[in-house]
Design a protein around this nucleic acid. Structure first.
Length: 294
DNA sequence: GGGCAGGTTGACA
DNA sequence: TGTCAACCTGCC
C-alpha cells in the first residue's frame, strides 16, 4: 500500500538531513523504542511515520539520514529537524550529562550514540501513554492505530492521524473498550471529558514549571507519576522528567545498587545525579537495558 | 489453566 | 508512609 503511493507519479527524491549523528541502532531506538508509537519500519529498512498529521519517511543510507513526504507543502525540513531534536542544544545536553564521572552512563551513551528524545505533540503523547500500563509496544501501537483509523483524519495510503481529544470526547467508554483497551478505556474517556470541559488546559501545562505540570497532569484519571513523566518528557519537552518503569528500576537497583531505596528516593537520586537532562539519560538506560547492552 | 506483565488506584495497617 | 489486590488483555 505504502509502496504504491511512493511509486505514484514521479518518484520522490530523498532529501538529506545534515548533522544528525544517528546510527541505524539509535534511530531505531528513537523511533521504535517506546517513546513514540506512530513509526513502523518496512522490510527495506525505511521508517514510516506521522508528524503533525503529515506522513513522513526516514531512512539511513550509509552515513546519510534521508527523508521524504507526500505532502511537502504542509511540512518543512525545519519541522523535521525540530521533531528529531537535530540542533546544537542536543550536543549541549549530551555534554551536560555526568558521563565523565559515571561509567555506567558512559557505556550506555557510547553504545547508543545519537539517541534522542523526540519532540512529539502533547495531546497525542498523552493518549498513547494512557494506553501503556502493562501493555507491550506492539499492543499500544495496534490499539492506537485502530482508534486513529476509526476516528482520525485520513492522511492517504490507508494511514490515519490522531483524532484529537475533542473527537475522542464524543466516543463512549464502551466503544473504546472494543479497541482492547480494557480498564484503560475508562481513563481515556475520563481524560477526554476533562479536556473537553477545560479548553486550553493541556496546552497551558507547557507554561508551567516541571514540578507544577507534573502535579497538574497527575489529576487526570489513570495518570500516576510514571505516565506523568513520560508525557512531560516525550510530549512537552521537559527533559528533567525521569520516568521510572520496571526497566529503569532494574538499572537503578542493580547497576546503581539502590536496592533498599523507595521509588521516591530513587527519583530524587536521578534528579540530583543526572540533572536537567535526566530524561535523556533515562532513555539511554531504557534502550540499553532493553537491548541487553549493559 | 494459571501466572504474569514497561501502571494506577483505593483500601487498609 | 508503605503494602496489596484488582483492573483488561495477551502471551508463555
Amino acid at each position: 500500500m505504502v509502496a504504491q503511493e511512493i511509486n505514484k507519479g514521479s518518484p520522490q527524491t530523498w532529501n538529506i538531513l545534515e548533522g544528525h549523528g544517528f546510527t541505524t541502532l539509535s534511530l531505531a531506538e528513537t523511533l521504535g523504542g517506546g517513546q513514540s508509537f506512530v513509526w513502523d519500519q518496512d522490510a527495506t529498512g525505511v521508517w514510516h511515520g506521522v508528524i503533525n498529521q503529515v506522513m513522513i519517511r526516514l531512512r539511513i543510507d550509509g552515513s546519510l539520514l534521508e527523508w521524504q513526504t507526500n505532502n511537502p507543502r504542509c511540512f518543512s525540513k525545519k519541522a523535521l529537524l525540530h521533531y528529531l531534536w537535530i540542533d546544537a542544544t542536543y550536543q549541549d545536553a549530551i555534554d551536560t550529562l555526568p558521563w565523565r564521572s559515571d561509567l555506567i552512563l558512559a557505556k550506555c551513551m557510547d553504545s547508543l550514540s545519537g539517541l534522542r528524545i523526540l519532540r512529539q505533540p502533547l495531546d497525542e503523547t498523552l493518549f498513547y501513554f494512557l494506553l501503556s500500563p502493562v501493555k507491550s509496544i506492539p499492543q499500544i501501537k495496534e490499539t492506537g492505530r485502530k482508534v486513529s483509523e476509526t476516528f482520525g483524519p485520513s492522511l492517504g495510503s490507508g494511514r490515519h492521524g490522531f483524532p484529537g481529544w475533542t473527537r475522542l470526547s464524543e466516543v463512549s467508554e464502551k466503544e473504546l473498550r472494543d479497541f482492547k483497551m480494557g480498564y484503560r478505556a475508562k481513563n481515556v474517556a475520563g481524560t477526554a471529558q476533562f479536556i473537553k470541559n477545560h479548553p486550553n488546559w493541556l496546552e497551558s501545562l507547557q507554561e508551567l514549571s516541571y514540578n507544577d505540570a507534573r502535579t497538574e497532569i497527575m489529576t487526570l484519571p489513570g495518570v500516576g507519576g510514571k505516565i506523568a513523566d513520560c508525557v512531560l518528557l516525550f510530549g512537552a519537552g521537559m527533559l528533567q522528567a525521569f520516568p521510572i518503569d520496571t526497566w529503569i528500576d532494574k538499572v537503578l537497583t542493580q547497576r546503581y545498587h539502590l536496592d533498599d531505596w523507595s521509588l521516591k528516593q530513587k527519583l530524587s537520586f536521578a534528579h540530583l545525579h543526572f540533572g536537567d537532562f535526566a530524561g535523556l539519560a533515562q532513555q539511554f538506560f531504557f534502550s540499553s537495558e532493553r537491548l541487553r547492552l549493559l
